[in-house]
Write a protein that binds this DNA or RNA. Structure first.
Length: 494
DNA sequence: CTCGTCTTGTA
DNA sequence: ACAAGACGA
């Protein structure tokens, strides 16, 4: 690629690459632009915990970040570069680094997180050199997706149609062969000193078996998914007992170890090869949901805290400490809910179908606020993403912009029987129920004594009795909705 | 203004 | 069948 010497800088001049949620070298448009316009690159990651950010990194995210940064550092060293790690206030650190290196510009990826957007603005004001943002974590530019009247979409369907009417997302860029460094790189913290890994108790044992953070791990996950899972994805993605039924790319996408662009194009090619049209339709739709969540957060910065439909703020959420702990620890006595919550704790990840079931159970049956569930997921998921997490919890809470009728309450028993009919999922994560026959596995409290006896199971001793009656929980949720949301809205309109 | 449309459900 | 409108063209 020809280097342009006439623009912002000389080929020998320095640019800072400020990495955030874009921990990769391939298809990185900010990196490519920096290399294109400047000769020498200083890649920096700043761990900024100085502000009172309610959405500071959760424990699972910190585990992931540690390993992802290690992988990125190694990938940079292979290209005659290195990753500069700094901890503290982003603004002063980057200002100092610009001075120290004599950098003439700063490049970074575009982000949709409100706090990161305003932090980027603050950095721009402080560093005294131009700041260039490039789209790195969505397929489409949020500015380009507009309704006919120029407004923003609030419903997925029309949003997705508008995206699909756009020109195809650009082809991904290859990773640069080499990333030249200035003669003297600024000093870097030692990653191990950051203490991102759990101390004791070390809950991360189940993480290693499932995840390989970093660009290479992301690529491997993508390839194995496309190889034999894209065909039939529409159905297999709903089977939690099939560990590979989904792409499992979410944490890699969140940290930007792979770009939606790369996934889009790779999947499209694979689908064309295999004539897997329906697999492509479903999977590309999921990628558009990822874009849609970012888009919503971009235009609704309070989405993580406040219901998009204001009437829902009036719901009388219950404070239920014991219930919340039971839910978190997978001891609700509802097998599919407990299986999901235990999977989350063990692996930092939960199957999408089960996320909906466990979330619906918390918000509807338990009548605990979606914000409380959101906070727990944010702390425990390796793919904790402010936009996706908030949008999804609002959706299940019925207060998202999409019309998810509140009265649509997932029945965890029906869901279990439909989506885990052979009990593979529940038996894996709730082994104390292993010996129960399929018929009673999802509703042990209904099993006859003789069945329980044969399985050597005493409810309340070996496995909890349900913390609530499902029918009563459902009715209570519907009553609350009718009284506080529907009624409130009518009152407001009158 | 009207009309088609609306991720994932339950009884 | 139910239940609840709202979004967007």
């Amino acid at each position: 690629m020809a280097r342009k010497t006439s623009r912002s800088g000389l080929p020998g001049s320095v640019a800072i690459l400020w990495l955030r949620h874009d921990l990769r070298l391939s298809d990185h448009r900010a990196l490519a632009a920096a290399l294109d316009e400047f000769g020498l690159i200083v890649p920096v990651f700043v761990l900024d915990e100085s502000d009172e950010n309610r959405w500071a990194l959760g424990g699972a995210s910190r585990w992931w970040l540690h390993h992802s940064l290690a992988a990125l550092g190694a990938a940079l060293r292979k290209r005659q570069s290195e990753l500069v790690l700094r901890r503290g206030d982003s603004v002063s650190i980057l200002r100092d680094l610009v001075r120290e290196t004599g950098a003439a510009a700063l490049f970074c990826g575009e982000t949709h997180e409100p706090w990161l957007r305003s932090l980027t603005d603050a950095v721009e004001k402080a560093v005294g050199v131009p700041v260039h943002r490039r789209r790195v974590s969505t397929l489409f530019d949020a500015e380009a997706i507009r309704t006919k009247s120029g407004g923003q979409y609030s419903v997925y369907g029309p949003f997705a149609r508008a995206c699909r009417a756009q020109p195809e997302p650009e082809d991904p860029l290859p990773a640069p062969q080499s990333i030249p460094s200035p003669k003297r790189m600024p000093r870097s913290d030692a990653l191990d000193d950051w203490g991102l890994l759990p101390k004791k108790p070390d809950w991360s044992g189940g993480f290693d078996t499932m995840w390989t953070p970093g660009e290479a791990g992301a690529d491997k996950k993508l390839k194995s998914f496309l190889k034999d899972r894209l065909d039939g994805y529409g159905a297999s993605r709903n089977v939690p007992g099939d560990p590979q039924g989904t792409s499992m790319l979410s944490p890699h996408l969140h940290w930007g170890e792979i770009s939606p662009n790369q996934v889009w194009h790779a999947a499209k090619q694979a689908a064309d090869r295999k004539k897997a049209k329906s697999g492509w339709d479903s999977f590309s739709g999921e990628l558009l949901w990822h874009d849609f969540s970012a888009y919503l957060l971009r235009y609704n910065p309070e989405m993580p805290e406040k219901p998009l439909r204001a009437a829902y703020a009036k719901l009388p959420w219950r404070r239920d400490k014991a219930g919340m702990r039971a839910w978190q620890q997978g001891r609700t006595g509802i097998p599919i809910v407990d299986a999901g919550m235990r999977q989350l704790w063990r692996h930092g990840w939960m199957h999408n179908r089960v996320r909906m079931i466990t979330a619906s159970f918390l918000v509807k049956h338990m009548l605990v606020s979606w914000q409380d569930g959101e906070a727990w997921f944010f702390d425990t998921l390796v793919d904790a993403d402010l936009a996706t997490n908030a949008a999804s919890w609002q959706w299940i809470g019925g207060c998202g912009t999409d019309s998810q009728p509140f009265f649509r309450v997932f029945n965890p028993v029906t869901q279990g029987k439909t989506h885990d009919p052979d009990g593979r999922y529940v038996r894996h994560y709730v082994p104390e129920l292993k010996a129960l026959p399929d018929r009673w596995l999802h509703c042990p409290w209904q099993a006859p004594q003789s069945v329980l006896g044969k399985a050597g199971l005493v409810l309340g001793r070996d496995y909890p009795k349900p913390i609530l009656d499902l029918d009563r929980g459902r009715d209570r949720a519907l009553d609350a909705y009718r009284k506080h949301v529907r009624g409130a809205k009518k009152g407001a309109d009158a």
